[in-house]
Structure formats: structure tokens, C-alpha cells
Design a binder for these strands. Structure first.
Lengths: 227, 227
DNA sequence: CGAAGCTCCCTTACGTCGTAAGTCTTACGT
DNA sequence: ACGTAAGACTTACGACGTAAGGGAGCTTCG
């Protein structure tokens, strides 16, 4: 009786793929070397033959996410011509990125924590610069714009963690005393849209609102630049 | 010979103050129960008499930061009347918050990770809603504006971690091949301002640019609302 | 005055984490 | 057949948060 379980051999790729699945399924803090090894049908230390340490795994995960983004947009290169609609093109590219991140909610936190941006991350940013350049923005304006869009460039998903169910305050009267303006706003907005008892903030809507605010602002500065 | 070292007795306040100093000095990941105990001249487990666990300490730290913000702005209540200059008032309040966070660069990451916002955090948000309300924005617009300003509300400092020295690419020709648009922008911006060899992005400038983009956008929507 | 109780700190120990160091097994080239 | 090396496994260490319980010193009350 052969005790060989016909395991697929380990490899950098297989480790990273499994790590991504595990992070998606159980969350980032459950992604531990031993848990990952279990998932691979292997001992923890065996992983170290294919990847030097845990940060390398995390960097690999980020790079995989960017690869998904590239697939979603059909490559990071800016379209051949988008002078007339640069902001629409950029908008949809950013929303593509957001869609990918919604599938991997742990990714934004990871990107914040890891220092150096990998090759694909640089390619992604480069594509965005290309789009803005094609729209006629000056390099200076693009530079500021990159910073302004900031986390939105990566379609961040901070709201996904905690927000929705948290809003209905435990003791409304005490809450109103503590935060009168917030309470008034809450009452008003809920009144306008009474069916949404909880989850009264639609993340997608809010995200697009903020994004459009920035894109509109950039477009206006472009026009101002052009006299 | 009394071995009593005349230690100040432990207390919730003293623990939190020392924890904040330690985080400022050594970074958040060096803030460990044992290190904190050392700093207090005490054993690790002694802390647990005054605070239930580590998350409670982290929450306490965040609350301390918001207390500093309150001191910086002179309380979170909106000024009595700011109809004509709501966005200037909001702007300076947010820049005040940013100034505090620059003293505690670990704080933003902590706020992102901790779920429920403490009393002072709610008070801070409430003050901002009050300012916008005083400026004549509708509750609906305020609601969206809150989300849009998002991290800027807390004056985030993500750039402080990694950015500045990272930019000069190791191999310029390879970088240009990988990211042509980025490289062009880099060359252009550096050319315009040749004295800033590294650190060519001024964080404060970039932050204010993005903030103004959002504030201008909100003001324009307010005007549109008012016919 | 002495005993009981409370406050505040310490000791010990457990389980989990990432990983350094070394060992065993298998497959293959010669 | 045998050395060799790739690729897995075993063992162990130090750091982490913290559960459980111990004990010194003060207060309170009979």
C-alpha cells in the first residue's frame, strides 16, 4: 500500500494560489504558515523551500490581486485615444479595480502595510498616468491628481469591515445628546429612504460619489490650466 | 532598607499615557504587553488589573488621540455661525486633525482596524456635520460628503510610511520601459523643481490639494442644490 | 487587637505565531 | 550500486497575548 497520496508537488505558484483562497475564505489573520501548510497537505516548514518568509507570501498575494485587476481591464496600457473622455475611462478602470478588491477585502489593508509596490502595481499606476496624459492633463496636475485619488485609485473597501450594521445607536436619546448633528442627519436620511432599515449607506454609491467629486475637480483644473 | 522604589502606582491613565509614548517612540508593533510593562516598571500581567486586554489599550490610545484633536480645535462643537465660510472652517479643522496625527503616525492604521468609534470620535464627526449644516448643505449632501472626505476627515498620513525616498528608481532605463508614463511625469516634475532631489512630493501640499478638490466639489453641489 | 476582606501586583504556565537548524526520503545521473 | 541533491519533515526557540491563581499590604469591623 503506497502511502503516497498523489499530491501535486509544491511550488511557489501553488502556495500563493492556496494562500489567496485561504485569505478569501477565512480572513487574513487566519492565514498562518501552519494553516496554509495544512491546506496544502504539507508541513509548515516545507513552504520555506519555495518562499523565503511570510512577507514574501503577502507580497505575492498583492501581486496576484493586481494580476486580477489587469485581467479585468484587459491590461494596464491606456487606450489608444481617449482625449475626449479621459475621466470616463479612468472612472471605469478604477471601478474595475474596486470590483476586484471586493472579492479580496483583506487586500487594501495589506497594500497599506507593505512598503514597496511590485511590478504590477507600478504598471497599474502607470496606466492611470497614461490615461490622464491622454486626456490632456499636465504632468503637474496628474501628479497631484494621483495623490488626491490616492486610496480610491485602488478602489478601497474600508466600509466593508464594520459599517453597515453599526449605525442604529443603542440608546437613541443618549446618542442625540452626544451627537445632535449626526442624529439629525441620520433621522433625515432614514426618513427619505425608509425601506433601508440598516445598511442605509450604499457603499458603491458613496464610493462613486467621492470619486466623481475628485474627477470633476480635476477636469475643472484642466480647463483652468488651458485658459 | 525598604525595597519600595517609590513607584507611582499604576492606573488606567498612566498605562495609556505610557503606551502612547511607547508607540510614538518605537512604533506600534513594538507596543507589546511586556514592553509596556517594562516601561512602567512592572510585570506584564499587572496591567490586566487596570485594563481588560490589549484591544482595550488600543482603543484607549485612539481615544487619547481624539482628545488631542479636541484640544487642538478648542472642542468639537461647530462655531456659532459659519454660513459664509463653512468650507474654510472645515478645512482648518481637518488640517488641525492632520497635525495631531502627524505626531502619532500609527494612529490611522489603528483606526482602520478597530471597529466601533469611541465617544470622542463620534463627537468629532458630529462637529463636522455641524459645520456643514451651518454652511447650508442638505443632510443628504452632508451624508455623501462625509463618506467622500472619508479618511481625509481624519487627516490620514499614509504617505509618511514609505513614500519619499522610494521614488528614485534603481535602474532608470528598466523603469522607463516598465512604466513610461510614470517616468515621463517624474522627469517633468523633477525638472520643474530641481532642488528637491528626493522627497519630491510634499505630503502637506498633496493633502491640501486633495482636500480642496473635495471641498470645492461639495460647495458646487450645494450651489446646484440651491438652484 | 485580631481576623476578614479588598486592592493591587506578581508568578507560572499555556497555546499560537514565525522560523532557524538539522534530518530523512526519494529520484536520478553516472 | 552509489553519491548527490531536491524537496519534504522534525524539533526547537523566542516572542506574543493572556488564563489561573498566589500573596503582600491596607482597610474595616467585631
Amino acid at each position: 500500500m503506497p502511502r503516497t497520496a498523489e499530491r501535486t508537488p509544491l511550488s511557489r505558484e501553488r502556495v500563493l494560489q492556496t494562500a489567496l483562497q485561504l485569505a478569501d475564505r477565512d480572513g487574513l489573520d487566519r492565514l498562518t504558515m501552519r494553516a496554509l501548510a495544512d491546506e496544502l497537505g504539507v508541513e509548515a516548514m516545507s513552504i520555506y523551500y519555495h518562499l523565503p518568509n511570510k512577507p514574501a507570501i503577502l507580497d505575492g498575494l498583492i501581486e496576484q490581486v493586481f494580476a486580477e485587476m489587469a485581467a479585468e481591464t484587459g491590461g494596464f496600457a491606456p487606450p489608444a485615444t481617449n482625449a475626449s473622455n479621459w475621466s470616463a475611462v479612468l472612472r471605469s478602470r478604477i471601478l474595475d479595480a474596486r470590483r476586484v478588491l471586493l472579492r479580496h477585502p483583506w487586500a487594501p489593508a495589506l497594500m497599506n502595510v507593505r512598503g514597496t509596490p511590485g511590478t504590477l502595481a507600478i504598471g497599474y499606476a502607470d496606466g492611470i498616468v497614461g490615461i490622464m496624459r491622454g486626456g490632456g492633463l499636465s504632468h503637474d496636475l496628474i501628479h497631484h491628481g494621483l495623490h488626491a485619488i490616492g486610496s480610491r485609485m485602488y478602489g478601497y473597501v474600508q466600509e466593508l469591515n464594520d459599517d453597515n450594521a453599526a449605525e442604529p445607536p443603542a440608546d437613541p436619546v443618549q446618542f442625540a445628546a452626544l451627537a445632535p448633528h449626526l442624529a439629525a442627519m441620520l433621522a433625515d436620511v432614514v426618513h427619505d429612504d425608509p425601506d433601508s432599515t440598516l445598511g442605509w449607506c450604499d457603499d458603491q454609491t458613496e464610493f462613486e460619489f467621492g470619486l466623481d467629486l475628485l474627477l470633476d475637480g480635476l477636469e475643472r483644473r484642466r480647463l483652468a490650466e488651458a485658459h
